[in-house]
Design a binder for these strands. Structure first.
Length: 492
RNA sequence: GGUCCCAUCGUCUAGUGGCCCAGGACGCCGGCCUCUCACGCCGGCAACACGGGUUCGAAUCCCGUUGGGAUCACCA
């Protein structure tokens, strides 16, 4: 049996939202399968029609493909174990549910919501675990028959042992012991004729010959219920791999409501898909050595479920920022330029600038694409700024020296015929030599005059080149005018 | 609350009885580079939750405490 080909599955429900914890589960499932040369499957768990979101399946398929987590079998790619959408497998579940009734491992339950609520309320008052009381377990066959014929709504419940322990092994958590007494007679088939996740998942995993189940650790406690089902059906229990949750910084589980935890949101903010995948791979898993940068194929190679951590991991966007920056810097200029262009245009569409040059300046300074507009907002026009920006201790610049050197620079700038970085550089540094001043004393005020910003991508020469001669001179003149007429705030 | 699980720097983690007065990374701080910022380079701060055992020896094993997470649906 061990020689069976490894088959793993990612089984999301189409609720229109792929949060990073889910994506990580998909990643681990993919890695585990591919590491073993096995098959990765996508199965859609849409048995709760009330939560179904239009277009969610397409979104899931798209994200998996985009991130490189290509599934070998799935709703849109087919395979020998289909259909891969649970709502299309109703007959299958019905058949097995009835088989369980025949073998006395499950039973019809006709209790309505009111009665169930009452039981729960009674349990609450008695301070015991809320559990179904087994009322319909002992219904006489005639009554069941009568109810069925009367078309009374029913569910099918699983018969759980009333007492005793059950033990199972999990690849990351080890041996887990659970008391049957706290396990409810869970519903297998709902009144609407659809199976619950708890049931469908067991049936499908077996029928699809899943060898390793990778899922969130929130299923750890209910695992014995599934195991009972496997036993009742005479099926082999797959290898269990439960992974701890991904938490939001505050120590709360990641959720849609808590913030931008979805894959889409990160993409919108200008994170690279490879960086996201790389980062979440490291969230709760470690390669064992100190390596941190991995391509997907490298992850496949390095992955080992023995190195999955048991404790919940907190998602750290700051570290993702760094990793994303690493990925951005590794891009070729062309690649980066292509990605950056929309964001550059967002900030500047008036000035006919050398956009490639902007990208070159930006690339080592950008962590996520969405930061770009704010970094180059000075290109179209100088933002409002305070004149005390001209004071810079380390540059040995003050508003007084600034106006003086700006004035000396003006004629020099005017004489530059060929407006490129080389010529601007030569001219400006000749002036610095002449004046016998520190480079910063001239270059700092010039840069401020052009940008109105404390920091910019590139220095004066690069920005001057970008803006062009005319605009540069115009801005320097304006700075001189302001310095000559306005009082410097805070100056004494 | 019952039950299950977990616990190394702020965060992600290495560590599976001696190699650890605990290693890497992010962040933070300092320095170098430098026309600003960033990149890059160098350095620094910073953790075995606590208390008992076991052992010649414990971050590593056991027990308890504390803290955290999960679960108790006709949701997955």
């Amino acid at each position: 049996m061990n020689s069976k080909k490894v088959r793993t599955r990612f089984a999301p429900s189409p609720t229109g939202f792929m949060h990073v914890g889910n994506l990580r589960t998909a990643l681990y499932s993919y890695l585990l399968a591919k590491k073993a040369g096995g098959v990765f499957i996508l199965r859609i768990e849409d048995t709760d029609q009330t939560r179904y979101v239009e277009g969610a399946v397409e979104m899931i398929c798209h994200i998996l493909k985009e991130t490189g987590l290509r599934y070998d079998e799935g709703p849109d790619v087919g395979g020998d174990y289909g259909p891969y959408v649970q709502s299309q497998r109703q007959e299958i579940y019905r058949e097995y549910a009835h088989r369980l009734i025949t073998t006395n491992d499950a039973y019809y339950c006709f209790c309505d919501k009111e009665r169930l609520d009452k039981i729960r309320e009674e349990c609450r008052i008695a301070k015991i675990d809320p559990k179904y009381d087994g009322h319909c377990r002992k219904l006489p066959p005639e009554e069941i028959q009568k109810n069925l014929e009367a078309k009374k709504p029913f569910v099918i419940r699983q018969k759980m042992p009333a007492s005793g322990d059950t033990i199972f092994d999990d690849k990351v958590f080890g041996t887990i012991k659970v008391d049957f007494a706290q396990l409810d007679d869970q519903v297998l088939m709902k009144a609407d004729g659809l199976p619950t996740y708890n049931f469908a998942n067991v049936i499908d995993d077996h029928l699809m010959e899943i060898t390793h189940i990778i899922r969130g650790s929130e299923f750890l406690i209910s695992t014995p219920k599934y195991n009972q089902l496997y036993r009742a059906l005479g099926w082999e229990i797959p290898t269990l791999v439960h992974v701890p949750p991904v938490m939001k910084a505050a120590g709360q589980k990641m959720s849609k409501r808590l913030g931008d935890a979805s894959y889409d949101d990160f993409i919108k903010k200008g994170y690279l898909k490879d960086a996201i995948i790389n980062y979440i791979a490291l969230l709760g898993w470690s390669p064992g050595d100190n390596r941190e940068i991995f391509t997907l194929p490298e992850l496949v190679n390095a992955f080992d479920i023995n190195n999955i951590n048991k404790a919940p991991a907190i998602f750290d966007e700051v570290k993702l920022n760094w990793l994303n920056g690493e990925y951005i810097r590794k891009l070729s200029l062309d690649e980066f330029h292509q990605m950056a262009l929309p964001y550059i245009k967002q900030a500047s569409y008036l000035t006919p600038i050398d956009v490639r040059k902007v990208s070159r300046l930006l690339q080592p300074r950008v962590e996520k694409l969405i930061d770009i507009p704010g970094q180059i907002d000075f290109i179209d026009s100088v933002p409002d700024y305070r004149l005390d920006l001209y004071a810079h201790q380390k540059m040995k610049s003050t508003p007084a020296t600034a106006i003086q050197f700006l004035k000396s620079a003006l004629p020099v700038l005017n004489t530059i015929d060929i407006w490129n970085e080389e010529h601007i550089h030569t001219a400006v540094f000749e002036l610095i030599d002449q004046l016998k001043i520190k480079t910063g004393q001239l270059l700092w005020p010039l840069r401020i005059a052009l940008s109105g910003k404390q920091s910019t991508p590139g220095g004066f020469i690069e920005i001057a080149y970008l803006l062009g001669k005319e605009e540069t001179i115009k801005r320097v003149e304006e700075a001189i005018r302001r310095l000559g007429t306005e009082k410097v705030a805070g100056a004494s």
